[in-house]
Amino acid sequence: MSLVRQDGESRVNLLRRFTRRPGRTAAEATALVVAAVVAFPLYWMVLSAFKPAGEIESSEPRPWTLAPTLDSFRRVFGQQDFGRYFLNSVVVAVAVVIASAFIAFLAATAVTRFRFRLRTTLLIMFLVAQMVPVEALTIPLFFVIRDLGQLNTLWSLILPHIAFSLPFAIWMLRGFVKGVPEALEEAAYMDGASRARFLWQILFPLVLPGLVATSVFSFISAWNDFLFAKSFIISDISRSTLPMALLVFYKPDDPDWGGVMAASTVMTIPVLIFFVLVQRRLVSGLGGAVKD
């Protein structure tokens, strides 16, 4: 703020510099308040998960607890097959992330680097595919999966999730592949690199931030889904996933809030860890994808 003391400045400028300071304080205060409001539901979730039963169902809810307990978590983990649901969710999410990242990378390279007939049509189809309401497709998809004989298997979750996360992933990755100069590709071939070598050792590391950003989306959609799990896993509940386990505690008439909150916490933490790990790349990744 040494500028304020500069003599050459016009009075108007001086005034503006002066008023900007309280402006920033207000902005920062607003940012902190908003952050607190946004984080509050998560705080309340974790807090309620640790509260003893009597405190959760009290008519005087307090924003702290003096007697934290693991009771609710015990109920969640003690639920029959809970570990299995967790494992199922992890298997589905990991399979979807890896498969869709792999396919999306190859497909995005193909649609940006090669010109072929129907290329534009294909691109528009990727866009249209994103618009399809997944819930409406559940009905015909149910018949497809039944005809494949895959009802009640994890494949009935993995395959549709890959199919539904691909269009968005390809669409986003396009921007990244586009950003890699073509001269680099030519130089690599000049130096005698094969096509596969260029793809995996040069292009792949360069578009990795983009892959991370798209993986976040496919991970979340696979991890969060309860529609497919509810519709395709109809009788064999040992193939069920976490969201289903959460719903067990939530009965509309008399929900077990402690159990719901503990299960929610357990379900949210892996996603949070995933997000914090990729946070930096995500911000730069999203910027890069949308810029093009």
Partner: peptide
């Protein structure tokens, strides 16, 4: 955090 929270939770 809000973004990472599953819709159902």
């Amino acid at each position: 955090g809000a973004w990472a929270t599953p819709a159902i939770t």
